[in-house]
Design a protein around this nucleic acid. Structure first.
Lengths: 121, 121
DNA sequence: CATAAACTGAACCACATGGTTCAGTTTACT
DNA sequence: AGTAAACTGAACCATGTGGTTCAGTTTATG
């Protein structure tokens, strides 16, 4: 065990851990926007907004392009497939774990001499 | 717009943003464990591990109980439903956004005089 | 009772975050 | 040419993170 080459998962989850950043993604899903548009949508300085966009860009959740004096921000390539995959796998383990617990509780209440493992219902 | 009461999403995503923490969850899905067991699985001090468990506990991803001198860690109540829901919704928007882009590109290549919106195929 | 195991809390460290201000630079408009 | 908009970078600030060490406390065991 001991190390978990996290890679994308780290940066993607970290990027999603901020409400402003999630807001920006929702906003960009409606339409592309400049840094200033985003900045005053979220009542924040240009500089502050640029940092958030930087984080999202670094996670490939946003892509930007400079056109004249304005930087256009659009949704990036990352579709969060790996992230959902991790969580879904975790949820399966979670369910299995609690199913097992249920079986134990039930066995304590209705013990049976046959100790072979029961199959999932 | 302007504020996004993030609540759980914040802490859950933040908790998942660390590879050690994801590792702990996977480990606990296999079986409950004490702080010391986790600590040496991940080659870390007890104190360090306790902090990680603290973060996970704070996000309801882990629940602990002290039994004698050992603290038992098990999976917590949070099944990450809200988190998956957010991401899934985002992916839908993402698809819609790129479908729209495809339509534009296609229309540029094969222009048609009828400008009514085409329905999704 | 004595010792050791297992945890806990405080204090520290280097570095990242989420913001700001201030001082530029580049580009558009008149 | 001159002004203003839009961004950019550096510096700063308070707080959080991921880890450590050290000094306890509690609980189990010989």
């Amino acid at each position: 065990m001991v190390q978990f080459t996290g890679g994308h998962l780290d940066t993607a989850f970290a990027a999603l851990a901020d409400p402003t950043r999630r807001g920006i993604l929702e906003r960009l899903a409606r339409a592309d926007a400049s840094i200033s548009e985003l900045a005053d949508s979220f009542r924040m300085t240009l500089t502050g907004m640029k940092k958030h966009v930087g984080v999202l860009e670094h996670a490939d959740l946003v892509a930007t392009e400079k056109v004249g004096r304005v930087r256009i921000c659009r949704l990036g390539a990352r579709r969060l497939d790996a992230e959902v995959a991790w969580i879904e796998r975790y949820r399966q383990l979670w369910e299995a774990r609690f199913d097992a617990l249920d079986r134990i509780v039930e066995d304590l209440q209705h013990p049976r001499t046959n100790m072979t493992r029961r199959t999932r219902s």
